[in-house]
C-alpha cells in the first residue's frame, strides 16, 4: 500500500457503493481545481529543479556568459574544459577515492555490526535485553555535541587525528538508528523459520547468514544506502578529524576549494559541485524505493 497514492475511486468501491457518492467524487475530479493543481505541481517542480539545472548550465557555459545581465538562461555554447580543470586544480580523484573508501567502509561495518547487535536485541531472549535496548533508543536523542570534545581528546591521544580512523572505526560499534530499524524488522519476521533452523542445529551466525539476511534485504539495503549517503555528504566529522590534503574527502576538499582557486571561478566550482553530486543522484535513481522506504520507516515509527 505504501508509496501508492490514495485512489478516490477505490473509496467508492470499498465503501457502500452508493451511486450518489460516486457521482460527487467524480464531479470533484473534474473540477477546474485539477488544472490548478497540476499547474502548481509543475511550478514547484521547476523551482526545485532549476538550481540543479543552473549548476550544470554554469559548469558548461563559457566564461563570458557567466556574468551577464540578464543571465543567459540556456547556454548557447558548451564548454567541457571545466570538468577537466576540476580534476587538475584540485586532487579530485584523490578526494573521490578517500570519500568512497570512508563511505564504503562505513557501509560494510555498519551493516555487519548493526545486524549482529539487532539480532541480539530481537531474536535472542535474555534478561535485561529490553532495558539495554531502551538505552539504545535514548542515545538517539543525544546531541553529538555532548560527546564531541571528549571523543576528540580520546582520538587525539590515540594519535588517530589526521587519519581515517575516527571516521571509520566507530562504524564497528553500530549506529543506534539502524540497530533500532533492524530490530523492528527482525521482530516482524515469522519465528518458525528461526525455530526450524535451530532444530536443524544451525548456530547463530549460520542463522543470521542463511535465514535472517535473505529475508531482511529491504532493511539492510536501506541501512546501506543511508550510511553511504550520510558519509558521502558528511562535512562536520572530516572537518574535525582530517588534517591534510591527502586524506580530504570531497566535501572538505570542495570547501577548501572555495578558499583557493574556485572562489574566483564559478564555472569550475559548479563543475566540481556537479561531479560531487552525481554519485548520490545516481544512487537515488537506482535505490529510490529504499530511500522512500527508509524515510517512511523512520517517519512512521519514530
Amino acid at each position: 500500500m505504501r508509496g501508492r497514492a490514495l485512489d478516490p475511486s477505490e473509496v467508492g468501491v470499498r465503501g457502500a457503493g452508493a451511486a450518489a457518492r460516486e457521482l460527487s467524487l467524480r464531479r470533484a475530479l473534474r473540477r477546474p481545481g485539477r488544472l490548478a493543481q497540476q499547474a502548481v505541481l509543475v511550478l514547484v517542480s521547476v523551482l526545485f529543479l532549476f538550481p540543479i539545472y543552473w549548476m550544470v548550465a554554469t559548469a558548461v557555459k563559457p566564461d563570458a556568459a557567466l556574468f551577464v545581465n540578464p543571465p543567459q538562461w540556456v547556454p548557447t555554447q558548451l564548454v567541457w574544459k571545466r570538468f577537466e580543470e576540476a580534476f587538475t586544480y584540485i586532487p579530485f580523484l584523490r578526494y573521490t577515492w578517500n570519500t568512497l573508501y570512508i563511505s564504503l567502509y562505513n557501509v560494510v561495518a555498519t551493516v555487519i555490526s548493526c545486524t549482529l547487535v539487532a539480532y541480539g536485541f530481537s531474536r535472542l531472549e535474555w534478561r535485561g535485553r529490553d532495558a539495554l535496548f531502551f538505552v539504545v533508543i535514548a542515545t538517539m536523542m543525544l546531541p553529538y555535541q555532548v560527546t564531541l570534545i571528549p571523543q576528540y581528546i580520546i582520538f587525539s591521544h590515540l594519535h588517530w587525528v589526521g587519519t581515517f580512523r575516527p571516521l571509520t572505526i566507530p562504524a564497528w560499534f553500530g549506529s543506534a538508528f539502524f540497530i533500532f530499524l533492524m530490530r523492528q524488522f527482525f521482530l516482524s519476521l515469522p519465528s518458525d523459520l528461526f525455530d526450524s533452523a535451530k532444530i536443524d542445529g544451525a548456530g547463530h551466525l549460520r542463522i543470521i547468514w542463511h535465514v535472517l539476511t535473505p529475508l531482511s534485504k529491504p532493511v539492510l539495503v536501506t541501512a546501506a544506502v543511508f550510511t553511504f549517503m550520510w558519509n558521502w555528504n558528511d562535512f562536520f566529522w572530516p572537518l574535525i578529524y582530517l588534517t591534510s590534503q591527502d586524506n580530504y574527502t570531497l566535501s572538505l576538499g570542495l570547501y577548501n576549494f572555495i578558499g583557493a582557486v574556485a572562489r574566483t571561478d564559478w564555472g569550475v566550482l559548479m563543475a566540481a559541485a556537479s561531479l560531487m553530486s552525481i554519485p548520490p543522484v545516481v544512487l537515488f535513481f537506482f535505490a529510490q524505493r529504499y530511500f522512500v522506504e527508509g524515510i517512511t520507516l523512520t517517519g512512521m515509527k519514530g
Binding site: S156, H157, T243
Partner: peptide, 15 residues
C-alpha cells in the same frame, strides 16, 4: 603537510 585551520589541529597534536 598543508592544512587549513592549522592552529586548531596543532594544539591537539601537541596535547
Amino acid at each position: 603537510t598543508f592544512m587549513p585551520n592549522l592552529s586548531n589541529k596543532l594544539a591537539a597534536a601537541i596535547a
